[in-house]
């Protein structure tokens, strides 16, 4: 069983390879899109690399769910994710820090759920 630190180091290596960033940029709180410049296509590359580096299987949509709270999902009102939407996020993406997001659930901030720490938490559940 890998320790949290060991997981972090491997996740950092994975993101350095996938995104071409420096390892000191890959802090636990760094957001993949905002801070590390990830684009949608990078997510598939990250999934491939995590599967290889940790010898785990990551089925489609489990680490990076698709179509989170889109405009037509019924979970958005006034640019914010509704309470039902937040509940759905907790189910769909339990490895993300939903509590922090729920304090000010702007749709425009949804992509900030995808952090380095989120990946580490997800990997930890898969290694158990």
């Amino acid at each position: 069983m890998a320790s949290a630190d060991e997981i972090l180091v491997k996740v950092q290596e994975t993101l350095v390879d996938a995104l071409g960033v420096d390892d000191d940029e890959v802090t636990p709180t760094a957001t993949l899109i905002g801070d590390l410049g990830a684009e949608s296509i990078d997510f598939l590359d990250i999934v491939f690399r995590l599967e290889k580096n940790f010898d785990i299987k990551i089925p489609r949509g489990e680490l990076f769910p698709e179509n989170l709270a889109t405009a037509d999902s019924g979970f958005v009102a006034d640019g914010k994710v509704t309470e039902e939407g937040i509940a759905q996020l907790r189910t769909k993406i339990p490895h993300a820090d939903i509590d922090a997001f729920a304090a000010n659930p702007l749709v425009s901030k949804l992509s900030d759920l995808f952090t380095v720490d989120m990946i580490c938490r997800f990997v930890a559940t898969r290694l158990k």
């Binding site: 598939l44 590359d45 491939f48 599967e51 290889k52 489609r60």
Partner: peptide, 10 residues
């Protein structure tokens, strides 16, 4: 072929 799945491959 390194990876092949529904979403894509490498």
């Amino acid at each position: 072929l390194q990876d092949a799945r529904e979403e894509g491959g490498s």
